[in-house]
C-alpha cells in the first residue's frame, strides 16, 4: 500500500535508483553506488537528513564550516538544481557527472561558462571577472594593486572578447578555452574514475543485484 519503504529510501529521500542514474551519466552503476557512500558521509556531517546543506558542502570542501567562499557558493547553487537550498543524491550525481573524466568536453565547457556567468545574464562580464579576481585575492592573501588587476582584465578580454563588446559570450568562451585548455583542468576529477576503490564499502550496501552492470 506504499507504506513500506526501504531503509535507504526512507533515510535518503532523494536517493534515486542507481541503475537509472548510471544510465543518465558517464558513471557505472558501481560508481553511482560508491558515490552514495561519499554522499552519505557528507550529508550526515552536520545533520543526518540525507541531504547536503551549504554548511555540509563547505565543511567537505574546506574541512571548515565557517569559511564563506564566493566560488564554493556558486558551485553549491549550481548543484542545487531544484533550488531547494540543499543537494539531494540525484542532484549530486548528475552535477558531479560533468566532472567525470568520460564526460564530454562540450558539457565541461558549458558548465564552466555557467559557473563564471555569476549573474546568469548569458555573458561573462568584465565586472563579474573583476569581482571573482578580488574574491580570489582575498581568499589567497595575494596582494595585487587595482592597476595590476585592470591589466590582467585588459589582457584577458583582449584575447577572449573577440567582438569587443566588453563581455564574453558562449562562442567566445568556447574559442578562449580552446586556446587555453588548462582552464578546463578544474572540470575533471580523476577521483571519479577511482571512486569504487576509494569507497569499496558500496559493495556491502548495494541494492542492485548485479553491480557489474
Amino acid at each position: 500500500m506504499g507504506c513500506f519503504q526501504s531503509v535507504a529510501t526512507k533515510q535518503f529521500p532523494g536517493r534515486e535508483d542507481p541503475v537509472a542514474l548510471a544510465s543518465q551519466t558517464a558513471c557505472s552503476v558501481s560508481e553511482v553506488e560508491a558515490l552514495f557512500e561519499l554522499f552519505k558521509s557528507i550529508s550526515s556531517s552536520v545533520i543526518d537528513d540525507g541531504l547536503i546543506s551549504k554548511e555540509e558542502f563547505q565543511l567537505a570542501l574546506f574541512k571548515n564550516r565557517k569559511k564563506e567562499n564566493l566560488f564554493s557558493n556558486r558551485i553549491f547553487d549550481l548543484f542545487d538544481v531544484k533550488g531547494k537550498g540543499v543537494i539531494d543524491f540525484g542532484d549530486f550525481v548528475r552535477s558531479l557527472n560533468v566532472f567525470h573524466p568520460n564526460a564530454s568536453q562540450e558539457d565541461k565547457i558549458n558548465f564552466s561558462f555557467t559557473l563564471y556567468d555569476m549573474d546568469g545574464t548569458g555573458y561573462i562580464e568584465r565586472q563579474e571577472v573583476k569581482q571573482m579576481l578580488i574574491a580570489l585575492l582575498c581568499e589567497s592573501d595575494m596582494k595585487l594593486a587595482d592597476e595590476a588587476i585592470e591589466t590582467i582584465l585588459d589582457k584577458t578580454f583582449l584575447e577572449a572578447d573577440i567582438n569587443r563588446d566588453g563581455k564574453i559570450d558562449r562562442s567566445e568562451w568556447l574559442n578562449f578555452v580552446g586556446k587555453n585548455p588548462s582552464l578546463l583542468k578544474i572540470m575533471t576529477l580523476p577521483y571519479l574514475r577511482d571512486i569504487t576503490t576509494t569507497f569499496p564499502s558500496f559493495v556491502f550496501n548495494s541494492e542492485v543485484d548485479d553491480i557489474a552492470t
Binding site: L61, T151, I152, L153, T198
Partner: peptide, 26 residues
C-alpha cells in the same frame, strides 16, 4: 615570488572553492 598569470581565469581557477577534489578526501 612566482610570476602572476596574466589570464584572469587561470588565477580564478586556483580558488580552493573550485577545487572539488577535496570533496573526495576523507
Amino acid at each position: 615570488a612566482a610570476p602572476v598569470p596574466m589570464n584572469a581565469f587561470e588565477l580564478i581557477s586556483k580558488s580552493q572553492g573550485l577545487n572539488l577534489s577535496s570533496l573526495f578526501e576523507k
